[in-house]
Design a protein around this nucleic acid. Structure first.
Length: 978
DNA sequence: CCGGTGTGGTAGC
DNA sequence: CATCGCTACCACACCGG
């Protein structure tokens, strides 16, 4: 450490003067971030100023940080302004320039050390070593790179020739890579860290990456690329689905750790969606609805809406017979569709197959085969079963023709129900005379035309409301039509209740258990007709009860007229669910996956020109006691579902914003990565893209020439905006880098590079020119003094001291083009009068419940608890909550009395800090302990706790609480660390 | 009463 | 070897002011 004094201080000043304005600001900001870093050392440096007089020197302050340089945490820390800036640009350069860049970096670093009065002696631990990193590592490739060159080694990104590298660093290798690298010294990343920590090169063989089971686990999937093309050609004509079969070989090549296509693979989503019938079905439906909605809106613009005045509506329900099976069979003239049992499923007709049957023809149904059944099961019922492949393009083509024909009929309105199914109202096409004949004629010609155009049969149900048309359709099938125009109650009498729309297994079960406990056979609508309306409402609630009652009597007021109420038909949410193939080893993999899902969500949002202001994450977690691998291959098995949502202050359509929220929500739910079986992200509260820009105007103009600093209260105090934004985490980064490069990187690095790039590109005027007063004040006094003069010289203002009762939040928003806005919102600690979002989604119940549950479960006995009936279990859990609430312990008192501000939720300003930190830090920060997640605060709290209880010993509850916290940290460590 | 969140159910093949 | 168990919307329970 250098002594205090003029020379070094002046050289520091020199150094400062070499910086650009924004670099200087960044430097200061980076100090403040470092100050908040979680290592106890870093925390001490700033909090215990008095104890460490040497820190009054500006240089030692800087030095103290540089001392930490070797620790992974520090290196993985947030961008360090100029330091990282240079490194980032270095990183982006091509491989051939790398040596030069490395040298430049070293030289630059040396200069920096000199300027800052640091020891410039170069470490030579890795002298003579040429290091290459393969695959995903922790610390990241970028960190290792930096560590190596800072300690005398060389680093290469590509293994251009054999023997170019002396060491390869990897955590896992595919069998292929194992073979390729068998003559290299392949070591784990820890080798680097240990060598640096001990100051000497460690024996590589101690860190040798021998065999790792990861690759072997996946061996079963090998060689798909070689075997598949041939197999495919032997199969039936598949030209339509061609594209999805081609990438096989690519997939194998691009994988960096495995050849399987499960959720860890970057292309998993694409593959999955390409082959998921339900995905197709759902998206088709949504698209069709949107299309018709737009069509209707266009029409009403030009001609205005003509309300259907007919008192007696005529509703037509058209539907293909076993759609998928019929269309798929078109390509197989060798099959006698009318007499052979045919179904559609993946993967042929192997007797053990757990593939779902998407659709089966009526021959199958005679054997008891049903849609959704597994091939395995169906094969038992019907050994001659023929399984056809999906033909998604064929389905779309047929659907298109269907809708063309329907539109050509000029009905009063059309409501698409599904890809193959639509409701029409044709009241105005039918006269009052000879109604029945006219309807029959309509049905016959419709069926004929559709068959001629598609070679597929449809059935048609007609009646005077939607419900009865639907039930008529059931009767009409297969390949027929039915017009129900009289004797409705009689018609309904013998139909099973489950045929009613909206009545599924759950309602039927409830009926059986609560209304007809003695009924042995299937419950019919006739039986419901005998029930009182009030009775049904009591059991099922007002809405469902009423609906059941009315349906039972053939009453249905459902409108199919989009035009009459376009609002009701507009999309209110977008979601993506993946409950198949979800298998993860670590939270890092999940994080990546969440980003990929978010990307898909945002693609949809952008296509619709919408932004979302609420993100919901739903997960499926393997039920206790369910087998690790369920009977269905890569299925989700028996699961419990959990969901949690979060509001966005500024509506967004950026995948990083949404993805980041999802990551936080995931941590909130708290699911062991190994137990995760399903993921779903849902966005709601959609707002048109343009309006969302308006909404953000109160904060700052996108292209605001200067500071975006606002007093939340002054602006629009009647809107809840400021409250919302303080609850949210929004850190968005531009996607300028090549995405394939980014994908290789751990997300933290990715973020930092992005952020840095952004900074490089963004016009300076977009950067905040203020330095937060709080940040400033936390710097050692001597530094403050220097900065003050330097800043004065530059005409940069130092923010006023924030009033005590207010809170400062940063919301950093990056736009697609790379422009940026950093918003500083100062808002009162307590939200004003009305605050619909006062407590973020978690204030009380959810998060706490989940966390509590874990605590209890650990104590009570998880297994026992889970065996209990849900109602009883709930009771016990609630009791426990009550117990917890009434038992205030030392922690609670300390926290209440101490200055620990209640950081209510990760989803607040402090998680912005955490998210720009190293991944691991970030994860630590997402674990709450005693209402805070900031390690420095937790450390302080624990310290105080220990001091207070050193004589009497701690309260057992406190011990448990702390233990729970530690175990959570541990879980994360296991899954995140090498 | 309102409005919030979380959960569960349903439909299409 | 398999397999691709989606998605939008509604209704309800429960909570808190």
């Amino acid at each position: 450490m250098s002594q205090d004094g003029g020379p070094s201080e002046s050289s520091f000043r020199d150094y400062m003067s070499t910086l650009e304005d924004d670099e200087l600001i960044e430097l200061i900001t980076s100090w403040s971030q470092k100050r908040k870093a979680s290592s106890p050392k870093a925390a001490d440096i700033n909090t215990n100023d008095a104890d460490q007089p040497s820190h009054s020197s500006s240089l030692s302050f800087q030095l103290a940080q540089e001392d930490n340089e070797e620790s992974v945490d520090d290196l993985g820390g947030d961008d360090k302004g100029p330091i990282f800036g240079d490194y980032a640009s270095y990183f982006a350069t091509k491989a051939q320039n790398q040596q030069i860049e490395d040298e430049k970096f070293l030289e630059w670093n040396k200069k920096r050390q000199q300027v800052q009065g640091q020891d410039t002696k170069v470490s030579s631990i890795f002298t003579g070593c040429v290091v290459h990193v393969n695959g995903y590592t922790r610390p990241s490739i970028a960190t290792i790179h930096k560590l190596i060159i800072l300690n005398g080694g060389k680093f290469i990104h590509h293994l251009s020739s054999k023997g170019a590298a002396t060491h390869i660093i990897a955590e896992r290798l595919t069998p292929r890579k194992q073979a390729e690298f068998k003559n290299y010294k392949v070591v784990r990343p820890q080798w680097v860290l240990d060598s640096i920590e001990r100051g000497s090169l460690q024996r590589w063989s101690d860190y040798s990456l021998i065999e790792v089971d990861y690759g072997q686990q996946r061996l079963q999937f090998r060689n798909e690329d070689q075997t598949n093309p041939h197999a495919k050609q032997d199969d039936e004509d598949e030209s339509e689905i061609g594209p999805s079969t081609e990438p096989m070989s690519e997939i194998v090549d691009t994988t960096d750790g495995t050849t399987t296509i499960d959720s860890k693979h970057p292309d998993f989503l694409k593959q999955f969606f390409a082959k998921s019938r339900l995905h197709h079905l759902s998206t088709w439906k949504a698209d069709l609805r949107l299309e018709f909605l737009n069509m209707v809106i266009e029409q009403s613009k030009s001609q205005g809406h003509m309300p259907t005045g007919a008192s007696h509506r005529i509703i037509v329900h058209v539907d293909f017979d076993c759609f998928f099976a019929t269309v798929s069979a078109l390509k197989r003239p060798d099959i006698d569709f009318q007499n052979q049992p045919v179904c559609v499923s993946h993967g042929g007709t192997k007797p053990g197959s757990t593939a779902d049957i998407a659709s089966c023809n009526y021959v199958c149904r005679k054997y008891g085969v049903k849609n959704g059944m597994w091939v395995r099961q169906a094969k038992k019922l019907c050994p001659d079963l023929i399984c056809l492949d999906y033909d998604f393009l064929g389905y779309e083509t047929a659907s298109k023709k269907l809708y063309e024909i329907l539109l050509g009929l000029k009905p009063d309105c059309i409501l698409p129900v599904s890809i193959d199914e639509a409701l029409l109202e044709i009241s105005s096409l039918i006269d009052d005379e000879n109604t029945v004949e006219q309807v029959q004629g309509f049905c016959e010609s419709l069926r004929r035309e559709i068959y001629e155009q598609t070679r597929c049969t449809v059935s048609v149900g007609v009646s005077h409301n939607v419900l009865l048309a639907k039930l008529s359709l059931r009767k009409a099938k297969p390949n027929g039509y039915f017009y129900l125009h009289e004797n409705f109650e009689e018609f309904l009498h013998n139909i099973p209740v489950s045929s009613l729309p909206g009545v599924g297994g759950a309602i039927v079960n409830k009926l059986i258990s609560q209304v007809f406990p003695h009924s042995s056979s299937e419950i019919t609508i006739g039986e419901i007709q005998g029930l009182e309306r009030a009775n049904l409402e009591k059991v099922f609630g007002v809405k469902t009860g009423t609906k059941l009652f009315e349906y039972a009597h053939g009453i249905d007021h459902t409108s199919i007229d989009i035009n009459s109420n376009p609002e009701a038909f507009t999309r209110k949410s977008i979601s993506i669910d993946i409950n198949w193939g979800i298998r993860f080893d670590s939270i890092a993999q999940i994080d990546e996956f969440l980003f990929r899902v978010s990307e898909e969500i945002c693609n949809k949002l952008q296509l619709m020109k919408m932004c979302t202001s609420q993100v919901t994450l739903k997960i499926l977690k393997r039920s206790k006691g369910a087998p690790i691998e369920p009977p269905k291959f890569l299925g989700c098995g028996q699961c419990d579902s959990f969901s949690k949502s979060s509001r966005l202050g500024i509506p967004s359509d950026d995948y990083r914003t949404i993805g980041m929220e999802a990551r936080i929500l995931f941590r909130n739910i708290g699911c062991d990565p190994l137990e995760l079986r399903g993921v779903s992200i849902q966005v709601t509260k959609l707002i048109e893209k343009g309006k969302e820009v308006q909404m953000r105007l109160p904060f700052a103009r996108l292209d605001a020439p200067k500071t975006a600093r606002l007093e939340g209260k002054e602006q629009h105090s009647d809107t809840p905006m400021e409250d919302k934004s303080m609850e949210t985490t929004q850190l968005e980064i531009p996607s300028e880098l090549d995405s394939s490069v980014l994908r290789e990187l751990p997300s933290s690095i990715e973020k930092r590079i992005d952020a840095q790039r952004q900074r490089d590109k963004a016009p300076i005027v977009d950067l905040p020119r203020d330095i937060d007063a709080q940040v400033f004040e936390q710097l050692p006094p001597s530094i403050q003094e220097e900065l003050r003069s330097e800043l004065r010289r530059r005409n940069i203002t130092i923010g006023e001291r924030t009033p005590k009762r207010k809170r400062v939040y940063y919301q950093q928003v990056f736009t697609r083009t790379g422009a940026s806005e950093v918003i500083r919102i100062i808002s009162p600690r307590k939200s004003p009068s009305k605050s619909p979002l006062k407590k973020s989604p978690t204030k009380k119940s959810p998060v706490k419940d989940v966390k509590r549950r874990e605590t209890k479960v650990a104590k009570v006995d998880e297994d026992v608890l889970n065996e209990l009936p849900p109602s009883l279990r709930k009771e016990i859990l609630e009791e426990w909550d009550e117990y917890e609430r009434t038992n205030m312990t030392e922690f609670d008192r300390l926290r209440e009395r101490g200055k620990l501000p209640e950081t209510k939720f990760h989803n607040s300003a402090n998680s912005i800090e955490s998210l720009v930190m190293d991944d691991f830090e970030c994860k630590i920060n997402l674990i709450m302990f005693q209402k805070t997640s900031q390690p420095s605060k937790i450390i302080k709290l624990v310290d105080r706790w220990m001091k207070k209880t050193v004589e009497k010993g701690p309260h057992h509850r406190d011990l448990e609480l702390f233990q729970t916290y530690l175990s959570k940290l541990n879980i994360i460590a296991i899954h995140c660390m090498p």
